[in-house]
């Protein structure tokens, strides 16, 4: 955990809206991801959490260069992927792979499992037919399927098995970084656990680095070393899982955490219920994007957008409350330590 394998700086994507007037470019745009910066270290798992529509998936695709960013840089092993020429980017794709959310839509229904898993090898011209077949068999066994499954079609498998196939395909090129875009949210809870344990095991075996996107806080807590909380295209808080779960500094993070269902009926829990819904990313609120829903909003929040500031040990948070002497958030207890039982 010393060296940053992936450095993202000021990553921004604005999608321009179609103008109602033909032949005129609209000046309105959806600010899907707005100036996101973070580092990912070798061998760790960075969790990205946030509500639907906060830009998590767009960010994943920006990091992976599936969408070209409006601004910002993505450095992988010291090389900027943005503005890289196509051929070179193709080579770099070997080091960064992605597992997608929907196990039913992410496998081409007309190809056998063997063909699907071998596809990255074919694309990057690795090995010959026989060695690829060997590799496919090996990968299938690594993810807990049988080598004999390679002749079957995706529709013959269940959701969990399909996600295993997706993971096998992502592993085929021995990548350094795997971006998991809600890899378990489409699965049953019992299957979720299997897939997550598989991901953890693979991380240990192959020294993988994950960017793990999810809206399920329990899954993130179990999986991740560090967590970034996103709200309306911005990272509002980032820190180790412990800092986020036990000592979060941002009211939005607190509200998110308080939405985790109680584990026992006796547990006393302070619920922070947010009013309203996520504002439109076309016209985000002035100042702090969160001020309309924040229970602690002050005058300054409506005017000045807060910067991410360090609150110790790389734990970053963007909130004006942190500048106050008597932070009202301190009055609200965070989850007690003994309640956390993982890692």
């Amino acid at each position: 955990m010393t060296e940053a394998i992936l450095k993202v700086r000021n990553l921004t994507k604005h999608f321009h809206l179609d103008s109602p007037i033909p032949f005129k470019k609209s000046d309105q745009s959806v600010k899907a991801v707005d100036g996101v910066s973070f580092d990912v270290f070798q061998g760790e798992t960075l969790g990205v959490v946030g509500e639907s529509g906060c830009g998590k998936s767009t960010m994943a695709r920006l990091v992976n260069q599936l969408i070209t960013p409006t601004k910002g840089t993505v450095e992988l092993n010291g090389e900027n992927l943005v503005d890289m020429n196509k051929e070179r980017l193709r080579v770099f794709r070997k080091t960064i792979q992605m597992v997608f959310q929907d196990p039913f839509a992410s496998l081409d229904p007309r190809k056998t499992v063997g063909e699907l898993i071998a596809e990255p090898l074919v694309i990057h011209k690795i090995g010959n037919k026989a060695s690829r077949r060997e590799r496919v068999k090996e990968l299938l066994e690594v993810v807990g399927l049988r080598g004999s499954h390679s002749g079957r079609y995706p529709h013959e498998f269940s959701g969990g098995q399909r996600q295993r196939i997706n993971i096998a395909r992502a592993l085929a090129l021995n990548p350094d970084v795997i971006i998991c875009d809600e890899p378990v949210s489409a699965l049953d809870v019992s299957v979720q656990a299997q897939v997550i344990n598989l991901l953890k095991k693979l991380q240990k075996d192959f020294n993988l680095t994950y960017i793990f996107i999810s809206h399920d806080l329990n899954v993130v807590r179990y999986m991740c070393d560090r967590i970034a909380v996103m709200y309306l295209g911005k990272i509002v808080e980032m820190g180790t899982y412990k800092e986020i779960y036990e000592d979060s500094k941002h009211p939005y993070t607190r509200a998110l955490l308080s939405s985790i269902p109680k584990e026992s009926p006796n547990e006393v829990k302070e619920r922070i219920i947010l009013s309203g819904s996520v504002p439109s990313p076309i016209n985000p609120p002035s100042g702090c994007h969160f001020h309309e829903r924040c229970p602690f909003a002050m005058e300054i929040c409506k005017i000045k957008p807060p910067e991410l500031m360090d609150v110790g040990n790389g734990h970053q948070s963007s909130c004006h409350l942190l500048e106050l002497e008597n932070n009202p958030m301190k009055a609200i207890p965070t989850k007690k330590k003994e309640e956390l039982k993982c890692h």
Binding site: N64, L66, L89, R90, V91, R93, K94, Q97, M98, F100, Q101, D102, A105, S106, L107, D108, K111, E119, P120, I123, H124, N166, R169, L173
Partner: peptide, 21 residues
């Protein structure tokens, strides 16, 4: 479809995506 995006993320060229998928 998502599987087209997957293939793009693997680094496939347009020709391959079009004729194979």
């Amino acid at each position: 479809s998502e599987f087209i995006e997957v293939t793009r993320s693997l680094g496939a060229k347009h020709r391959r995506i079009i004729f194979q998928h």
